Simulated scan of single mutants.
Amino acid sequence: MEIIFLEYPIRSSTAAETAVPKTLAIGHFDGVHRGHQNVIRRSMEAAKAEGLQAAVMTFHPHPKEVLGQGQQYVTCLTPLDDKIKRFLRLGVDVVYVIKFDLSFSAVTPAEFVEDVLRPLQVKKAIVGFDFTFGVRGSGHAETLVSLGQPDIGVEIVEPLMQDGDKVSSTLIRESLLEGSPETARQLLGESYEVRGIVVHGEGRGSKIGFPTANIEPEAAYVMPRQGVYAIMADVEGKLIHGVLNMGVKPTFHEHLPKPVLEAHLFDFNGDLYGKSIMIRFISFLRTEKKFGSIDELVKQIHSDAEQARAVLTAFNM
């Protein structure tokens, strides 16, 4: 898979280097959820049927972040590197990443088609039913159909529904904030993941018999509801079961500036400091609470670990 970073206006030399007739799935694709996957797979199917290259175009950073239209868009379900890896797993040939800045936000729908799609030799564009583009989102899927004529075909993919709701990045965010990684997994098609670096913590876990890996997220991920989770950790390609607390450790602190991720990995004794690990959130076990003593906390951690082991055993069956 080839990854090409673009800025508007696209240089003629860049366009010439990548000017292979292609299908193009277009969208921000935060989460690359099952609805997004439908759009991308349709692009790949059309490419195969018509003998074209299968490409994906995404925008970075999120347009609403650049335009100041929502603080929630400072965080994301899939930072760019994670998003690209998911595109790779889907099997696309090329990923275009367009820098979304104030200059690009002023591009009209007609300029987008004329100055971006045509120079890249897009023969068919595949978009979701709610796709918008161009200045202030003035272009819609139907606009693209009209502007693409006669040389760019357009296919509009209908929404994917689950339990009466449209599969969307917004719904996934809401599910995570409600403490339902199970629902998020159904919408994503895989468990929600957060990648981070293991850093030094307070060392208290080892003293009470539950050593923990303190994880500093590598990007501005959407963080799930604070509490205790059954997790799986990908450590250098090996999946290890565990239990994770995300919170402010009220038993030991009156106030922490931000939640801390502490993972206790079952039957693991290796050195993780400085390593990058991926945490998969499997199930929410309980809310975080303050305990009256260390003994009460240790007893609860034992219970959490037993519950997590049971959940993860059932999950893998």
Rank of each mutant, 00 (worst) to 15 (best):
P150V: 06
E236K: 15
L188Y: 04
I84S: 08
A49I: 05
E45D: 13
Y221G: 06
G205M: 00
M1K: 02
E236H: 12
K289T: 11
T212Q: 06
L297Y: 04
E254K: 13
K22D: 03
Y73I: 03
A141K: 03
L265S: 03
L265D: 01
V145A: 10
G237I: 05
V32Y: 11
F252A: 03
H33N: 11
A19W: 05
R118G: 05
L6R: 06
T75M: 11
G91T: 00
E142N: 12
S206W: 08
K123R: 14
E114D: 15
R136S: 12
G153D: 11
E158G: 10
K275C: 04
R42K: 13
S103R: 15
L187Q: 08
V311A: 06
G237L: 04
G139M: 07
G31D: 01
L117T: 02
D130T: 01
H253W: 11
T108R: 11
I279N: 07
V311N: 08
V248G: 01
K275H: 13
T14A: 12
P61R: 11
I294E: 09
R136G: 07
H60F: 12
D30E: 06
E288N: 00
L52W: 06
D163L: 13
V127H: 01
A46Q: 10
K299N: 13
I126Y: 02
E236P: 05
I84W: 07
R195N: 07
F266Y: 07
L80M: 12
R185E: 14
R136P: 00
V194I: 15
G203Q: 05
S168W: 08
M44K: 02
D234V: 08
